[in-house]
Simulated scan of single mutants.
Amino acid sequence: MALTTLEVSPVRPLHVLYLDFDGVLHPDSVYLTRNGIELLHRPGHTLFEHVSLLEEELQPYPDVKIVLSTSWQLIKGGYEHAKSKLPAGLQERCIGGTFHRREMRKAWFESMSRPDQVILNVKRRQPSRWIAIDDCPEEWPAWALDCVVRADPEQGIASGAVLAEMKTKCKRQFGARS
């Protein structure tokens, strides 16, 4: 009997983008109403209006995975519902959310700041590189700010300064553009 050699592929380092929706992919004035999730008081804007900018920025980094860090994962349908709001290409990158029903109570999670939610998840997943896109940068600890893209609550990632910061941090964290 001949012995065969197992081919072992090298383990790729985990690179994660922690993604908030409100104030990032559209303005932050989003509310749960009787009609569902609605963007209120922002004429001329739509939910997920900046998603193509995110797709474009992540295109050179095919190994980057997405972890949802949005309150959308707390409503009916949870993580799967939130993920379904993204285009197929971004859905394929999703590997989970910062909220896990098996690991934590909803009330406890809701009482945590977004930075605490993300940092807890970073400790659990241990990505080698990560970035969080969030519209509340003042809540982040100073040591994490190199990994945080500060979105504009009204313009999200469509703001020129935010887009420039996202490009710089993606390049630094995830590799040079090809």
Rank of each mutant, 00 (worst) to 15 (best):
G23A: 03
K85E: 04
I119E: 06
G77F: 09
L68K: 07
F109D: 05
S84F: 01
P43Y: 03
F109A: 05
Y79P: 05
D22W: 08
D135G: 10
K106M: 10
Q59A: 15
H15Y: 06
M166G: 02
Q126A: 12
V148L: 05
A144P: 03
K106S: 12
I157N: 00
K171F: 03
A132V: 07
L163N: 08
N35E: 12
D20E: 15
M104K: 12
I133T: 03
A151Q: 08
K76H: 12
C94F: 03
D116E: 15
V67C: 14
V51G: 05
E7S: 13
C170R: 09
K169F: 02
E55V: 04
L17Y: 05
H45Q: 10
F109P: 02
G44P: 07
H26Y: 03
D152Y: 06
A158C: 12
A107Y: 08
H45S: 07
V118F: 06
H100E: 14
L32I: 03
H81W: 14
G78S: 07
S111V: 09
K106C: 11
G77V: 15
S178Q: 01
V11E: 15
H100K: 10
L3S: 14
K123G: 05
A88Y: 12
K65H: 15
Y61S: 06
L17N: 06
Y18S: 05
A82F: 09
A2S: 14
L74T: 14
K83G: 01
Y31D: 12
P27T: 09
K83A: 14
D20L: 12
G156S: 04
L74W: 11
H50M: 03
P137K: 09
